[in-house]
Design a protein around this nucleic acid. Structure first.
Lengths: 123, 123
DNA sequence: ATATTATTTAAGTATTTGCTTAAATAATTA
DNA sequence: TAATTATTTAAGCAAATACTTAAATAATAT
């Protein structure tokens, strides 16, 4: 099907619309990748996991289960999603798997962490 | 029900677990708020809308429908979600509603935009 | 070997999400 | 006033999400 215009208003700026399409094309891959990371961090439980890893270095699934007061499988499934995109990595020590942030995977997340810390409630 | 521990391993660092719970408590409100913004930006269509608003200043729903090649109601519903949390605002000019980013609403998003631009594909 | 512990994986389910189409508002024009 | 245009809102639905419980791995200890 041909490209259908939804908007017929006189003020519609065709050059602007073309420029926007081009901008999206140029940044398409980055936008897709960043939106994936943001979708992961957009879940409160996962953001807590990432934030804690940033604070503590490494933690294991049962630590998170204790801290977040949720089941170990639920934690494990969140962790897997973040591992799948390379946000976090694991290290085995006996039966325990320690998870940690992959450094410099995504600058956006670094900024998210500092932003959370900046707004820390002053006791 | 009482707080049940999932993890009984000897190495479990009770002080660390307490510290983590406290950290989450202290930052609870911020984490909740930021995760909401990230969840919104974690949708590729919405991230494109936000990115375009950052580039162009203001655009109307039918502009987005044209650019993103999707229906006007679909765009409108995405826009509403972002307006509901105060990420964007509207200005009416006749029949047309122009949407724009609310400045300084969230520093995290500013960083997301610069991160997208930084990775721009070099033509 | 068997049992225990830490974790993952799988299957099932309720909720949420993102679209669709149709109808409702709102402003403009004839 | 009636018709047109821009937009929102509502209802319905398929797909995705986040949990649950039970079963499967994997490492350690008895």
């Amino acid at each position: 099907m041909a490209l259908e215009l939804s908007c017929t208003r006189a003020e519609a700026d065709q050059k602007q619309l073309m420029r926007c399409r081009e901008t999206l094309g140029t940044n398409s891959k980055t936008i897709t990748e960043i939106s994936k990371v943001l979708a992961l961090a957009g879940n409160e439980t996962r953001l807590k996991i990432l934030f804690l890893l940033n604070e503590e270095g490494e933690l294991c699934p049962c630590d998170f289960a204790d801290i977040l007061e949720m089941s170990v499988p639920a934690v494990s499934q969140h962790i897997r999603k973040m591992k799948d995109v390379g946000l976090i990595a694991s290290r085995r020590e006996g039966q325990t798997l320690y998870y940690s942030l992959v450094p410099n995977h995504n600058e956006v997340m670094d900024n998210v962490f500092t932003e959370i810390q900046k707004n820390k409630k002053v006791a």
